[in-house]
């Protein structure tokens, strides 16, 4: 997994609540058996005016000029500013894969759906939670300042605004450790193989029907 330590980038504001994973990456693109290549189809139905198909050359498709990621001022953005309950709906990990493949490294929102939130950490994508009023203020700052950038320092758990003020965020200690070091969960869990075997041996005694 890609490490996340510090990141500075252009912020794009996606001003709608309850953005679901069907919206982030529509179902026809889930037919791929690969983990990469979803970036051109991120927010496909919002981003293009036609209906997208898998394996299509997206460079020839008509863009929706009103969609935030198509606006020249947000070109090259790597931080997505979003509203509450971002990533609700399906468990598809294709959603963080698409965001990451597009170039998004962090999201800032007041809340996330649980499965999306969890999936993001497995892919080096940092979902930051800030209070609704703070997110509101960031939306205003982004709208008002072309080229608005934020800096994220995961070690210090702060989002640094252009004037140097810092917005502190909370993060689970284990997830922070994994992101900072780019650690593979499976490798870590397999270090506990003896504990898993001990659990199985004990459980086999109390619930043998789960092992027959």
């Amino acid at each position: 997994m890609k490490k996340f330590t510090q990141h500075q980038g252009i912020v794009a504001p996606l001003d709608r609540a309850n953005v679901d994973t069907d919206m982030i990456i529509p179902k026809q693109f889930l037919k791929s058996i690969k983990r990469s290549g979803f970036g051109p189809n991120l927010f496909d139905e919002l981003r293009y005016l036609d209906e997208g198909q898998p394996d299509q050359d997206c460079s020839q498709r008509p863009l929706n000029p009103d969609f935030v990621l198509n606006k020249p001022r947000y070109e090259g953005c790597s931080i997505l500013l979003a509203r509450k309950n971002f990533g609700c709906g399906s468990s598809r990990e294709h959603a963080p894969w698409a965001l990451e493949d597009f170039g998004i490294r962090a999201i800032i929102a007041p809340s996330y759906a649980d499965i999306f939130f969890n999936n993001s950490f497995k892919n080096g994508l940092l979902p930051i939670i800030l209070e609704e009023a703070t997110v509101d203020a960031l939306f205003q700052a982004v709208e008002a300042n072309e080229g608005y950038q934020l800096t994220i320092d995961l070690e210090k758990q702060v989002v640094i605004q252009p004037d140097g003020t810092e917005l502190v965020f909370d993060i689970d200690a284990f997830r922070k450790h994994c992101l900072l070091n780019g650690l593979d969960d499976i490798g870590l869990t397999l270090e506990q193989a003896d504990a898993i075997r001990d659990y199985e041996a004990a459980r086999r005694q109390t619930a043998p029907w789960l092992f027959s």
Binding site: S91, I115, K122, I186, A193
Partner: peptide, 15 residues
Amino acid sequence: GIGTSEVEHVLATQC
């Protein structure tokens, strides 16, 4: 529900 990374995790570790 779980994501695909966790599908792999469960396959590999049962946890």
